[in-house]
Write a protein that binds this DNA or RNA. Structure first.
Lengths: 217, 217, 217, 217
DNA sequence: TATGAATGAGAATTCATTCAT
DNA sequence: TATGAATGAATTCTCATTCAT
């Protein structure tokens, strides 16, 4: 009788245990010994579950993809109101900020090391899938969902590379406020409500986007 | 004197020659031999100009920073009109898209390998410097410049990792259009012109952001 | 009692099952896992019967020696006529050609890996034993039996290493013909029969050994 | 300027230095460290000249083949009389006995490890070439040259595996005597000389091949 | 007994770095 | 300065062997 009941389950456990080390140091930057040490396993055992170092990269990527999508789908499953969904959306990005950084680092390693272009399809599929879900659940156009997604990625990146450039959490909050204003506020806006909204947006631009009205000509 | 200048100049030449290889394969992923091969120099010569592999990373980073800033500053130097500046801004991001990808990859390597936190200061300084320049030259608030910068980084990233997710160049174009509309359009807008702008923005949101007005409540 | 017999029997069965793999890949070239796989047994079970890899080599060698001798002895047990014995002798070498190749490969591994010189005694004993039996049963001098044995080994070797150099089976046939001619033909040859034989041999040499009578001086 | 003037020459020097160790321990039995140690070189240097362990096997084989053939061709180049050639032939086999053992061990490793069948062609070519040369120089038929070659290989083998089975050198001597008797003795034998020879051969068989004239029937 | 997961010493191989020329 | 051969520590990976089940 084998010690491990579910080999596949255990493999995922191992992946999870070394996820942060692996992504932070990078595929080429970690050694198998380091990984084994992190997992508290001998190198022999590590190779028992992953035939090569490269396979760890691949399986890590596959595992993250799987988990990621599943997590997101389960996220807003039982939430009905758009407003709450937006808030939950923000909470999630706040909560998983550091995790997304690591996922992103992993993607960079896939980009650098996967010659087959396999990862690209997966990543593209994930992006499309994710933005599609955003579009549906947050009641925004697919195009805008993409813009949002791009911006969020930029945010995660900056939070990682230049943590003092801004506060990641604050930026998420601002974004959530704007989304609520635009999406909830504009919904079914008619008559005077629409006018109020127009005014708000105009003022927002005047005060928050344009620097100096006098200079521009 | 002249020797030192030459030597330094030559070192930069070497850095430039291996920049793409270095960033694409990554610090831990390239070997000194590969780098020497790319530059068409023996490993001995390579070591003559860079005492260690790590020094290549550092000097590459310093070189990029220097060049980058200089490039940007020289870019809009003699352009007066805001509209033209915005356009030039767009052209630059289109032209240097791939270069920015590599710079970004380099930053990831600095992030992963620099224990001293030195790179972080540099990167932060650069971000602040760049957004400050954007703010001044494009007549936008520092806050919005940051937002823009974040978005652009997300754009570059996606163009690299998921090139099929969207067309980088098209996205830049869309962004430029919006910037022109918001910045130039709103400049000194008064009376009826302001009303027209409000209407435009409102319609933009209704048609391009909100997916389905009926569903939202 | 019965268990021990069974266990021993089973061990021999295992040896037989992996004999070809073991000899063809070589002691240092096979892994315990490969051997276990060939036998259709887990490595644990393999170690249950053979405490070390080296013990497989030793026991394989002992097993082959035992079997080999037993086989040969049983071979000509009930054959009376010399002529038939010679023919049977030829048949055996034809039949076991490939097997002898493997035995030989095994001997090479013993030669390479046995530091104690134990194998040498066994091998020498076997050679002596075998040539002695040949001498007795084929009615040839021990010296000629050795010559024959040496030649047969060379034949097996060549058939293995350079199969296109000649046809192993044909060479055995030729050898058998010559043996019959020399041994049976000369037996008790007297008077005119001896003369006929002399003539035959002389002609054989002239036609089959000497290449060109004119050139030699 | 590189330290080593002739890279190829140096590579052969390395091959020669580790030839015995490599063949005696066998391809799978030696480690790269051992080989490097034998050559008095670091493992790094070893890999500088041989990209893989397998390449050592291949190049060793190629080197031996080359050397071997060259050696043999130069051997009897300036010897005119057949008798002297036969004697020189014997001397060579005596002198190179141990070397041939190693060559043979090398061939076994090629047999075991070369999947492409490349070695087989080479080995066959060598055998044909060698026997052809023997045929020409010793004035024997190609067929008999093959028989001789096979026998000699068997001799080398036995001398290696069962050194106490006989004295390799004595056996070579006996062979040389027989060759001289058969080849030189029969040359241009006519009339009474031929009769003398016939008698000799007949007696040789009666006394040296047949064990017991009474038993045979 | 039988299994195959676990172990870690050791094997092949790589690579930053040094150094003689 | 330039070269590339030489080095050996470190890396990936293998494999005989152990051991819990």
């Amino acid at each position: 009788m084998p010690k491990i009941v579910d080999r596949d389950e255990y493999r995922k456990e191992l992946l999870e245990k070394c996820f942060t080390l692996f992504t932070r140091k990078g595929y080429s930057g970690v050694t198998m010994r380091e990984i084994a040490g992190e997992i508290d396993v001998s190198t022999g055992t590590l190779y028992h579950y992953f035939p090569t170092k490269e396979s760890i990269l691949e399986q890590m990527f596959a595992y993250v993809q799987e988990t990621n999508v599943r997590d997101y789908l389960s996220l807003t499953e039982h939430v009905e109101s758009i407003e709450e969904r937006i808030e939950l959306f923000g909470e999630t990005w706040k909560k998983y900020g550091e995790y997304y950084q690591n996922v992103f680092l992993l993607a960079v390693d896939m980009f650098r090391n996967d010659g087959s272009g396999y990862y690209e399809k997966i990543l593209n599929g994930f992006s499309e899938h994710y933005t599609h879900a955003m579009s549906e659940r947050l009641n925004i156009t697919p195009q805008f969902a993409k813009t949002l997604f791009v911006y969020l990625m930029g945010l995660v990146l900056h939070a990682m590379l230049t943590p003092k450039f801004f506060s990641y959490e604050d930026q998420i909050d601002v974004l959530i406020q704007m989304l609520k204003a635009a999406i909830v506020g504009s919904a079914g806006a008619e008559g005077s409500r629409a006018d109020v909204m127009k005014e708000k947006i105009y003022n927002f631009i005047i005060h928050n986007v344009i620097r100096d009205n006098a200079v521009t000509s």
